Amino acid sequence: MPRSERSPLLLAGLLATAGVAHLAIPQQFDAIVPRLLPGSARTWTRASGVAEFALAAGLALPRTRKAAAHATAAFFVGVFPAHIQMAVDWRDRPAPQKAAALARMPLQVPLVLWARSVARNARTGV
């Protein structure tokens, strides 16, 4: 399988894994939902997990890959406030935990770029 075909499937796998985590162990994600959002944190956590599954499915299918990849890039930007919330909440934790929380923020950049690359390389109407 050519590298360009593996990349969207790897990204889909990452999203599906994250979706499982959001639904199987939601409490860790509930804790980082920005408190400014309306409704319960659990609702946002579940919605995020469902969105990750939908994006993964869209990336896995060549016909929907380009649109799903654009949506995935937007999703990664959209969840960035959760990483900020985590960094703020963990500012008084031990150094390794604080470093992990801070490291999550710049890691969003390569994820957004990866999704954009998948969109750019997707063939439409396949």
Rank of each mutant, 00 (worst) to 15 (best):
M1E: 07
M1V: 08
M1Y: 02
R3I: 14
S4G: 11
S4W: 12
S4N: 12
S4Y: 05
E5I: 05
E5Y: 12
R6D: 08
S7Y: 10
S7L: 14
S7K: 05
P8G: 02
P8F: 06
L10W: 13
L10G: 03
L11G: 01
A12H: 06
A12S: 10
L15V: 07
L15H: 00
A16R: 01
A18Y: 03
A18M: 12
A18L: 14
A18K: 03
G19Q: 05
V20H: 10
V20T: 08
V20S: 05
V20K: 01
A21K: 03
A21F: 06
H22C: 09
H22G: 01
H22I: 12
L23C: 10
I25L: 11
I25V: 15
P26S: 11
P26Q: 02
P26E: 06
P26D: 10
P26F: 08
P26R: 07
Q27V: 09
F29K: 00
F29Y: 09
A31S: 05
I32A: 10
V33D: 02
V33H: 02
V33N: 07
P34F: 05
P34V: 12
P34E: 04
R35E: 10
R35Q: 12
L36Y: 09
L37G: 12
L37D: 06
P38I: 13
P38Q: 06
P38Y: 09
S40H: 09
S40R: 14
R42W: 08
R42T: 11
R42A: 11
W44K: 04
W44F: 08
T45I: 06
R46E: 08
A47K: 03
A47Y: 00
S48Y: 09
V50M: 02
A51F: 09
E52M: 14
E52V: 07
F53S: 00
A54K: 02
L55N: 13
A57G: 12
A57R: 15
G58R: 05
G58H: 06
G58Y: 01
A60E: 02
A60M: 07
L61E: 12
T64P: 00
R65L: 03
A69Q: 03
A69S: 03
H70F: 07
T72F: 02
A74R: 10
A74L: 15
F75D: 00
F75T: 03
V77L: 05
V79P: 01
V79F: 03
V79R: 06
V79A: 01
F80N: 07
P81C: 04
P81Q: 06
I84V: 15
M86K: 15
M86N: 14
A87H: 07
V88D: 06
V88G: 10
D89I: 01
W90R: 15
R91N: 12
R91Y: 06
D92T: 15
D92I: 11
D92P: 10
R93P: 04
R93H: 11
A95R: 15
A95H: 09
P96V: 14
Q97T: 15
K98G: 10
A100K: 14
A100G: 08
A100Q: 13
A101D: 01
A101Q: 04
A103R: 08
A103G: 10
M105C: 11
M105S: 07
M105Q: 14
M105V: 14
M105K: 14
P106V: 09
P106C: 13
L111D: 00
L111Y: 00
L113F: 05
W114G: 00
A115K: 05
R116S: 00
R116Q: 07
R120E: 05
A122C: 04
T124S: 12
G125R: 15
G125A: 12
G125D: 13
